[in-house]
Amino acid sequence: MLVQQIVNGFTIGSVYALVAIGFTMVFGVLELTNFSNSSLYMFGAYITFLFYTATGIHFFLAFGISIVLTGLLGYGIDRFALRQLRKKKAPKLSGLITTLGMSMVVDNAIMVFFGTDSKSFENFLDFGKIYIGSAVVTWTQIIILIAACILMITLSVITYRMKIGKAMGAIAQNQDAAKLMGIDTDKIISLTFIISGFLACIAGTMVAMYYRSIDTAMGSSIGIKIFAAAVLGGVGVLPGAVVGGLVLGIVETIVSAYISTGYRDAISFSILILVLLVMPNGLFGKKAINKV
């Protein structure tokens, strides 16, 4: 049973990891807790669903269109709300409230348009299952885990090795200074949001395929988990988000299997608090420099 539970944990964890990457990236650049991230995740899944069922085009074409549209929505959130706030030198908190408001708008728009009932979603990644001992592993689970790793590596290369990533790092440290160095901060930040939209859509659609369904609570139900996974790994650190997600998933599964399903969240979150007590910057976070 333990092997099976670890497999289960890896699957849940890779779902968290997949969404947490986009979240932690925006965080890394802007130090902004993006509440609308889980809405983008839901939006992506619903748009894929819409294009696939309404137009009858090939699924992966619908997926592609959805990725672009979700990226655009991410861009829109930044362009029409957050950029205005930056212009006004608004405090970070107002950005947070704005993303909260945006997420309410997106969530409710989806609810009104699609209704709140669950929709069935076809799984195009269903390639059967394999056995490890008596444990069952489906290919969908493996693909999700691989996708999370590939995305993490790609993004890590972009942010840690490429010029644009350096620009992101500069903005993260000091926006004004970055501007003075000739970095087009607005462009880079918009790009960050577009990428986070892409990621959210990929995550949403893949998770929808795995569970074969989408519903309007899919975003809100994992919102806090995503945040927890990102913090656990050290906010802003991309590999951290993946590891944080996986650890959270496995802890949850083990708690649920051996202690109690009802108290699952209470126990796994208590463990999170304990970890933060010992490691205040998460598993991979660098110690924040306190500027006096």
């Binding site: 049973m1 099976q4 539970q5 289960n8 944990g9 699957t11 849940i12 779902v15 569970y211 609570a217 899919m218 809100s220 139900s221 994992i222 949850e252 599964t253 083990i254 649920s256 299997a257 109690s260 399903t261 009802g262 699952r264 969240d265």
Partner: peptide, 21 residues
Amino acid sequence: YESFVPGDTKDFSAVLSKIKT
């Protein structure tokens, strides 16, 4: 005899594996 919190749970594999055993 197990419960789950609706809305917070979408993956039941952990408890289902337990039931399986």
